[in-house]
Design a binder for these strands. Structure first.
Length: 209
DNA sequence: ACCGGGATGTTCT
DNA sequence: GAACATCCCGGTG
């Protein structure tokens, strides 16, 4: 297994729209379970109506306003969890949503955590799926990736981000609530990406009717 | 392939 | 009450 270099705090301390594509091909670690990040979205804080930080700090999103390099984990639709990596400076409230991973190791544990998954690409090909596969839940909110709290960390195994990542509008936002921002990036051609070009409008292209 | 609906709980109006 | 950064299953082409 390739050696991982843990990423330092300063790696996270920048605009999430700059950090997000840099996160592609980094390796998320949860104990023995590892996955390569292949799809992300940036949430740019107080001026971004799609962001949970849009209305300022609350009990739910508090970790988003904390130091960069920590997780922000929230409950989605009552039954799933989604994990973000906090970016920027303390108090700003910006983060990058992890939307898909390519499983690298601990795959048996992932199958066990995702009853019903048949194919490897069913394990981590969505923000709720990857949290289930890695066992990430609300109690992991605020975990520090730099210190590897609860065995969760982020490393670089020497694989560079794609030189030309795929770009699209963000997924799942309501019309007029930030859905027009092209702040989703993915590794082109990776089978774990939740929706590829042709199955979702690419930035600048007309929407399918 | 592309829909439509249900599950389920926290947040917001 | 309605909305929600989702997923799964069962319809129909």
């Amino acid at each position: 297994m390739p050696r991982l270099r843990r990423l330092p705090r300063r790696f996270y301390r920048r605009d999430p729209r700059v950090l997000a594509p840099e996160l592609l091909n980094k390796v998320l670690v949860r104990g023995a379970r590892r996955g390569r990040i292949v799809e992300v979205e940036a949430y740019a804080g107080g001026a971004d109506p799609g962001s949970h930080a849009y209305r300022g700090p609350t009990a739910r999103n508090a970790s988003m306003f904390g130091p960069p390099g920590h997780l922000y984990v929230y409950v989605s639709y009552g039954m799933h969890h989604c994990a973000n990596i906090v970016a920027g400076e303390v108090g700003v409230g910006v983060a990058v949503l992890l939307r898909a991973l390519a499983p690298l190791s601990g795959v048996d544990e992932m199958y066990a955590a995702r009853a019903g998954a048949r194919l490897e690409r069913d394990l981590c090909s969505g923000p709720g799926k990857l949290c289930q596969a890695l066992g990430i839940a609300r109690e992991d909110d605020g975990a520090d990736l730099v210190r590897a709290d609860r065995g969760i960390s982020l490393g670089d195994d020497g694989t560079a981000p794609p030189r030309e990542p795929g770009v699209s509008l963000r997924i799942g936002l309501s019309p007029g609530r930030g859905d027009e921002m092209p702040w989703r990036w993915y590794v082109p051609g990776d089978p774990n990406v939740s929706r590829g070009p042709g199955r979702f409008p690419v930035a600048g292209a007309p929407r399918r009717s």
